[in-house]
């Protein structure tokens, strides 16, 4: 009997040792989500790359502008940061597969368009895996150097007061430019019609909102010289 007990204990000990030698993060879901294939840059490596350098990223699609002429423009994110991939070569069939959360690998060239860091001339590969980002609250970072660190991420900004609503062509159909004020500063954001066209709730919502209304917004923290969030949702307070 004693022998059996010793054997069992030894076996348990062995199992414990084996368990201890496993990588600590095997069951870490974050590590799994951010796992990159060979040759793929981390977010930090991507941001450190020079403009015009070739880059390869893996991230999760959080939004897209309308597909056209075998090209699609994507808003992407991983756990470390946001990406914007401009006019990635993509068939219509593949474009249909790019639902929110889809993991993709994009190879292209790093570009800087008026402060917007993006992947240009990209090609896409659809991978296994999905993840949908929660909106990061960047309200506290407005007007600070911290804000740009969240460029291209899916964000929320709260308690903004509408200062102006202007349709690109003077009437609904194209982009809507919206100026907001908060703490004495003005921020110019946009309802980008290729992302959220006239048929979407957010586009329709701005037809009913007025200067002076206080709202919370969600969107992608696009950049055009300064923060120029592409708004995807708005809630009047």
């Amino acid at each position: 009997m004693k022998k059996i007990v010793i054997l069992v204990l030894a076996a348990v000990l062995m199992l414990g040792l084996v368990a201890c030698t496993q990588p600590a993060n095997t069951n870490d879901p974050d590590a799994e989500l951010n796992k990159k294939s060979e040759g793929v840059m981390t977010y930090a490596e991507y941001m450190a790359a020079a403009v015009d350098a070739e880059v390869v990223i893996e991230a999760y699609v959080q939004g897209n502008q309308s597909w056209w002429d075998n090209k699609i423009t994507l808003y992407l994110q991983d756990l470390d940061g946001g990406y914007f991939a401009y006019e990635v070569a993509c068939s219509e069939t593949d474009a249909a597969k790019l639902t929110k959360g889809t993991k993709v690998k994009i190879s292209g060239v790093k570009g800087d368009w008026k402060g917007e860091i993006e992947v240009m001339n990209g090609t896409i590969e659809i991978l296994e895996g999905t993840w949908v980002a929660e909106a990061t609250d960047v309200t506290a970072y407005l007007g600070t150097d911290e804000l740009i660190k969240h460029q291209n991420k899916f964000v929320t900004i709260k308690d903004l007061t509408i200062a102006a609503i202007t349709y690109k062509n003077g009437e609904p159909g194209d982009d809507i430019y919206v100026d907001f004020t908060k703490d004495g500063k003005t921020y110019s954001f946009c309802v980008e019609r290729y992302l959220t066209g006239p048929e979407t709730d957010v586009y329709k919502a701005f037809a009913t909102l007025q200067v002076g209304d206080v709202v919370d917004i969600e969107g992608f923290l696009y950049w055009y010289d300064a923060a120029n969030t592409h708004i995807t949702a708005v809630v009047k307070k």
Binding site: W68, N169, E171
Partner: peptide, 12 residues
């Protein structure tokens, strides 16, 4: 009247 800001969109 329907207005566009670039020719590519009209073409499309």
């Amino acid at each position: 009247l329907e207005l566009y800001t670039n020719y590519a969109d009209i073409y499309k």
